[in-house]
Amino acid sequence: MNIDIIFKIAGVGILAAVINNILEKSDKKEVATFVTLASLIVVLMMVIDMISGLFESLKSIFSLT
């Protein structure tokens, strides 16, 4: 079951938040934004193939295309 993806997203989110805090403390604001973007992209990569698999199977079931 793909419940672990939800945990991965939570982990990446919390990790990114912690890193952002550290970076902000050592006043490296611009690196913090990069970290936020990087975390977003990582999570998007994980999510995209799951969602496309879901929509493919939905299309085949409902014979949509």
């Binding site: 079951m1 793909n2 419940i3 993806i5 939800i6 997203i9 939570a10 990446v12 989110g13 919390i14 990114a16 938040a17 936020t36 975390s39 977003l40 999570v43 998007l44 999510v47 799951m50 969602i51 879901l54």
Partner: peptide
């Protein structure tokens, strides 16, 4: 509250799961 954009993705993934 810590990462709103990831919350959106988490919601999408939960629905998909």
């Amino acid at each position: 509250d810590i990462k709103p954009e990831l919350a959106f993705l988490a919601a999408v993934v939960t629905g998909a799961a």
